[in-house]
């Protein structure tokens, strides 16, 4: 249907507003991170930096620097935690998804799985805290890996199930007829076919784990296990006088998920839409 000139102007105006609303806060975060410290304390603000200052990034990437040490160890912990949790979640989720898809495991059970992670984490936190505390497992990356794996598991099962459902069942029947065991069929036939789905599931799981804050806040207390979100909260709560430092940490923590999200946009959006709408 044709648009009038007024309608066209309106559409572009709305698009512009949306772009500003979406990109504005992020852009400002990036600008802050490279502004001169004095620019950021002018009243009213100096929006365009008088000079570019990349020193904060240099400091963040320098192990010898205090904030660099904090940032880099948190980065390492985040990568290990999110990566480890994703790997374990997938390892456990794929057989379970196969059971739901091909062995007629009850959907009620899958819903129960999903319900457990929809519950507020506050419901689980204290017994977990007490248990980890008495086992001497607080402030350890491995603890977060296990908790996150459980948190990622139901959604990973759900996504993998939906993807295995659409694989041709005859191919698996053929393998069965040829005498292959279920483990063999899973490894040699199903996994190669489900590779794109596994990649998508892994990516979404990684992003969710990367974002997690609550468990990490409770279970970690120093450089050896604190993840990026906790470290950033520390930075923000500390007596930092240069807001640019906080901004630069924020930018660094956003880069990995933002790059993934933009690069695999179609993948992620379809996964998100399917994951949130189909029950």
């Amino acid at each position: 249907m044709r648009r009038s000139l007024l309608q066209s102007v309106l559409v572009y105006l709305c698009a512009l507003m949306l772009a500003v609303f979406t990109a504005g806060p992020l852009l400002w975060l990036a600008v802050m991170s490279v502004s001169m410290p004095t620019d950021l304390t002018e009243v009213p603000l100096r929006w365009i930096p008088s000079d570019l200052d990349f020193s904060r990034y240099g400091a963040l990437l320098d192990v010898a620097d205090g904030s660099g040490r904090h940032f880099l160890s948190a980065l390492r912990n985040s990568i290990l935690t999110a990566g480890g949790a994703t790997a374990i979640a997938l390892l456990v989720a794929i057989p379970a998804a196969y059971s739901f898809s091909r062995r007629k495991a009850s959907m009620v059970l899958l819903f129960a799985f999903l319900a457990t992670i929809m519950m507020p984490p506050i419901t689980y936190i204290l017994p977990l805290y007490s248990a980890f505390s008495s086992l001497g497992l607080l402030n350890k990356t491995v603890t977060l890996v296990i908790v996150y794996a459980a948190m990622l598991l139901p959604f990973a099962i759900w996504l993998m199930k939906a993807n295995i459902d659409v694989l041709p069942v005859e191919v698996e029947q053929a393998a069965l007829m040829e005498g292959a065991s279920t483990a063999f069929t899973l490894r040699k036939v199903v996994l190669p076919l489900a590779l794109p789905a596994i990649a998508a599931t892994a990516m979404l799981s990684f992003l969710v784990a990367w974002d997690e804050f609550f468990y990490a806040l409770i279970f970690t207390n120093d450089l050896s296990a604190k993840t990026l979100p906790v470290a950033i909260a520390d930075f923000a709560a500390g007596r930092v006088t240069d807001y640019g430092v906080i901004a630069s940490v924020g930018v660094m923590a956003t880069l990995p998920p933002a790059i993934l999200a933009i690069a695999f946009q179609k993948f992620i959006v379809s996964g998100l839409v399917a994951g949130s709408v189909k029950g």
């Binding site: 990109a23 950033i232 923000a236 956003t254 998920p257 933009i262």
Partner: peptide
């Protein structure tokens, strides 16, 4: 572009 807010970690969003 609108996937970016989703990709920003919750904590970074709060800090920003």
């Amino acid at each position: 572009l609108i996937i970016l807010p989703w990709a920003v970690p919750t904590i970074v969003n709060a800090v920003a």
